[in-house]
């Protein structure tokens, strides 16, 4: 790790002023990803601005009947919060599907959104990587790419976003509140992360001088019919090969609304409005679920080692929708997939 200086911000105003005048500085909150990247010399900030003492650690009701999760609320505190478990169990489930309890005790809501890819070439500074060093090439595209993207990738980068929490936030149509010296703005979750295109070094649409202040959940939490199904190499404490967040509104066995997001398959949580529209007004059954899965995977492309993920996703999606329709969401404790 390279030497860096350390300052602590006590107010939001101070934090955004400090980040605006020092582009080589970085905010640190939980630090679970940033410290790791610094140990590997992937990230080399000249200064860390500790934001843990900002007042962004509450979960509060919003005026429109939703919940506001402060950016500094830890993953554990979100997952076990009574309002989250009652009204947004899909979010609690996705969080508990990721990392370990020690990491969830440290990792924050804002930091989860900003975690970098776990592509092993991104982490290995001796290899070419367009995300780490733009213009050097992508080692994964012709390398070991079992964990890599099957949707939305580019010739420049086939990395995936590793978060489970973000897949649930995508389905819930969360809104990311951010602020800077230039003012505050709200970013719809679907627009927060970006596809790699020809600038894979940029993960999100958050500007360098902005800070996340909260993630807001709308009133509708799909508490009745939801499931988070994560398929991985071992049953706990591993990143997703494919994960599916499914949420349904049903009326007598007919689907009024369906939402599906995929994790582990792209540079951002993956949703497809056309696939969801296919289910609207249709009976909640396997044939329709399979059609939606085919639509979601349209345009999918494997890169060799990860070809199997296409079929895996096509099978995981109907399974998650079946669990959601039956009101029997996947348990994150008992790993049998029903």
């Amino acid at each position: 790790m390279n030497p860096f200086s350390y300052t602590r911000s006590g107010t939001l105003e101070n934090a955004v002023t400090e980040i605006a005048r020092d582009r080589r500085a970085k905010f640190i909150a939980g630090g679970t990803n940033l410290i790791d990247l610094m140990k590997e010399n992937v990230t080399r900030p000249s200064r860390l601005i500790d934001i843990n003492h900002l007042s962004l650690n509450k979960i509060e009701e919003t005026d429109n009947g939703g919940l506001r999760i402060g950016a500094l609320v830890t993953n554990s505190d979100v997952a076990y919060h009574p309002q989250i478990t009652r009204r947004y169990p899909l979010l609690a489930s996705a969080i508990l599907a990721g990392a370990s309890h020690q990491l969830r005790n440290m990792a924050t809501t804002g930091g989860n959104l900003l975690q970098r890819t776990r592509c092993s070439y991104f982490y290995d500074i001796t290899t070419a990587c367009n995300k780490r060093e733009p213009g050097t090439g992508c080692s994964a595209i012709n390398g070991f790419n079992r964990m890599h993207a099957i949707l939305g990738a580019s010739e420049e980068c086939i990395a995936t976003h590793p978060s489970d929490m973000c897949v649930a936030l995508m389905v819930l149509d969360a809104v990311v509140q951010v602020t800077s010296n230039r003012g505050a703005r709200a970013i719809p979750f679907a627009e927060f992360h970006r596809l790699p295109g020809d600038a894979p070094q940029i993960d999100t649409n958050l500007q360098p001088d902005e800070i996340i202040t909260s993630v807001d959940l709308p009133g509708e939490g799909f508490a009745g019919n939801h499931s988070y199904l994560k398929v991985r190499d071992r049953a706990s404490y591993a990143f997703a090969l494919v994960s599916v967040a499914a949420a349904l509104t049903l009326e007598g066995g007919v689907i009024k609304e369906a939402r599906i997001a995929l994790g582990g398959v792209a540079h951002k949580p993956w949703r497809n409005a056309e696939a969801e529209a296919l289910l609207k007004g249709k009976p909640a059954g396997q044939d329709n679920f399979r059609k939606a899965a085919e639509a979601l995977l349209s345009g999918a492309r494997g890169f060799g080692h990860n070809n199997f993920k296409i079929e895996l996703a096509k099978r995981a999606i109907p399974r998650a929708l079946k669990q959601a329709a039956a009101g029997t969401p996947q348990s994150q404790t008992i790993k049998k997939v029903l």
Partner: peptide, 12 residues
Amino acid sequence: KPINSCLTLAIM
């Protein structure tokens, strides 16, 4: 609360 002490700075 249990945490991984390898992923955090003492100064924090």
